[in-house]
Amino acid sequence: MHMADALLSPSVAGAMCCVSALAAGVSIRNLKKRPAACRRLAPLMGVMGAFVFAGQMINFALPGTGSSGHIGGGLLLAALLGPEAGFLTLMLVLTVQCLLFADGGLMALGANVWNMGFYACFFGGCFIWHPLVEKAAMNGRLTRLRIMMASVLAVTISLQLGAFSVTVETLLSGISSLPFGAFVLLMQPIHFAIGVVEGLISGAVLAFVYEERPELLWTGNHSGEKETAAAAGIGHFAGGFAMAALVIAGGLSLLASENPDGLEWSIEKLTGSTELESSGAAAAIQQVTSLCADYGIPGVESVWGNVLAAVLGVAVVTAAGFAVMRLMSCASCTR
């Protein structure tokens, strides 16, 4: 899933570098707030990065297929080091891979860190792996099967999100003229299969570690401090991203190109227009419910209408995101 420089436009690559740098900055700040977690982090991150690199070179045979798979680095790191340190370590692995082996482009590093690191560590790690193993670990009922299931689920879903991001980033860059649907159909099933295999291998490794040295896993069983700080970290993350999104949407929307983006360009090729004709009940509902049609505010015709619409959009999405996160954290608390 490593993206090459040729698949991105400078604006998309730059934007992805900004969000990944922001994620790394917030991760470091959160880690520094916990001196106990931060102690000896540099050697641990360095050597674990080297392990993921070496581990990905080992061929794990897939019975009946004649092919092989490898470990999923992101979830493995998040399950051992926690989401923040795991994310930073995966960033190092991707940097070394891009510099040494041209596996992913230099300018595309931000996009690759986001697609492979962010979803695996913060989404797969925090919202899937951790809630699934936490309570069982506390009750001493964490089984090999549960670890395998949590790993497969976390890796598969994060890879699906990452693959979807690759599709969107490539189309937004105007690189491919493949229709959106065809591109998604090309990417998602392949990464579903890869996700299942990587999840099984990572699960087998994590189950072995749990049997041998259970204190090494991030299950919430051994360090309450680690857990609450991680939860606080997610709050800081959300705040930071909301601010960045406001700046990008409100400020940079003034610089938005008049030319159609990749998706509109593809639609134009297929239909002769950048807009699709809409009709029926769904279109009628949309007419009534859309507050900022065509990215503008009714009655504000100047460019400030677009800025206001962008800021309003970010505010609504952020509020929805907070609501979902709140629901998810409540669900994991009551379990």
Partner: peptide, 27 residues
């Protein structure tokens, strides 16, 4: 033909545990 599924965990897991011990020594 590569590592068989029964040894996936133990083989890479052993390397991982040794890696973590090594990180302690480097620290």
């Amino acid at each position: 033909r590569g590592i068989s599924p029964r040894e996936w965990g133990s083989l890479a897991g052993q390397l991982l545990l040794r890696t973590i011990d090594r990180a302690e020594q480097i620290g």
